[in-house]
Nucleic acid binder design. Structure first.
Lengths: 208, 208
DNA sequence: AGTTGACTAGACCAAACAGTCAACTATCCA
DNA sequence: TGGATAGTTGACTGTTTGGTCTAGTCAACT
């Protein structure tokens, strides 16, 4: 009974957007309320703190954005390495578009937030780790599939996934710091090189 | 004439330490003053804002920590790839030590601060970019030297440096988020692989 | 139609915060 | 030794912030 409301959803959306555009610490509860057009009383009706809202916002980000996109891009019906390159190309495009729209490269919200709050807000940083862990599985899986199809050189999938995540998130971070999406332009190529992808060679290999 | 003081130096040290351990946004001017044992009046005698202090602190970090270490580790008297591996091994060790001492992997202050404030504090983020740019030259130089000695496969030095920085800073960021220094353990090996280092082969190469 | 429970409004409080100021003190140098 | 300079102090102001509280509003269901 009683009435229903989407104020909590608006709060999550506003929080994520603001924190992404600025930073966790720079955004106040009042800011979030203003952007969401929700009064403080309602904020505290739904959430107990900014941290609790951030956790909910991150989970929503995963459920409504990341998971659907990952599921479709990393579909098993696509060649393993193509999953990766299309994912990264789309990512590059989205960062270019964000820069055109907001004037800023914003990078990966989970990593930015995680790095900022890792020593402070344990609940938020636990959620970030959880989400990054879920994402990692897609990388590990694609590496295993590429190994099975022998389109990359032999390696330890877990370790390669770590390196891959490092390379990707590292360059995304640099792109945010430098405000330059072009850093991400040949991320697909760099990734293939890191994985030692066997280029679709014209069948015969020449020997010296 | 007049009296002298090292309060400004203490402020820079305190600011850097606090921001590194927590984050830029989480640290207040009062916090910094308390840690430095300096009163607020003195703070404003030396600096106009937290941002201005942060810029000075970053420059001090470069001048007293990074530059000396880089100059000695990346000495031309050492083999190119050895410069890199010893640098990264030392870095791994220092992060392990930090974790043991503070209970936390803190990563790279410049990258953490840069990612956090890039959309907010333009002076701070400009200083971060400046310092990261200086550091980049060491990487580019080591890659060019390795190319000259033919200990790595042919490549474009600038592009490889970007990838190298991405990999390193990315894994450092992950280590901070995960609070796990072991992520950095085989950073040297990953780096050599990214660079396609020619392993010191026992002279003859076997062909199938 | 009326009761109940979900939600909203916004005034209010105390603490934390950035920033100011005038009076004070130590040191250097002539 | 004494004046000019460089630095210190802590109380003070005004604002922002997180957080609370109460009176009220709206929609669902009986």
């Amino acid at each position: 009974m009683g009435r229903t409301s989407d104020a909590d959803e608006r709060l999550k959306d506003a929080a994520l957007a603001l924190i992404w555009e600025e930073s966790y610490g720079a955004v106040t509860i009042d800011d979030i309320c203003t952007r969401a057009d929700v009064k403080k009383g309602s904020f505290y009706y739904f959430f107990n703190s900014k941290a609790e809202l951030a956790v909910a916002a991150l989970e929503k980000l995963w459920a409504t954005q990341w998971k659907p996109r990952l599921d479709s891009t990393f579909s098993s019906s696509v060649e393993p390495l193509t999953r990766l390159t299309t994912y990264l190309t789309n990512f590059y495009n989205s960062q270019v578009e964000t820069k055109a729209r907001v004037g800023r490269v914003l990078g990966c919200p989970a990593c930015s937030i995680g790095s900022e709050v890792s020593t402070q807000e344990i609940d938020v940083s636990a959620k970030v780790r959880e989400i990054l862990g879920r994402k990692r599985r897609y990388y590990e899986s694609v590496i295993r599939d590429a190994l099975a199809e022998e389109t990359i050189e032999p390696c330890d999938p877990a370790q390669k996934a770590t390196a891959l995540i490092g390379l990707i998130e590292g360059l995304v971070g640099q792109a945010r710091i430098m405000n330059d999406p072009e850093i991400l332009r040949n991320l697909p190529a760099m990734t293939l090189e890191l994985l030692r992808a066997k280029v679709p060679v014209p069948s015969t290999s020449a020997s010296a």
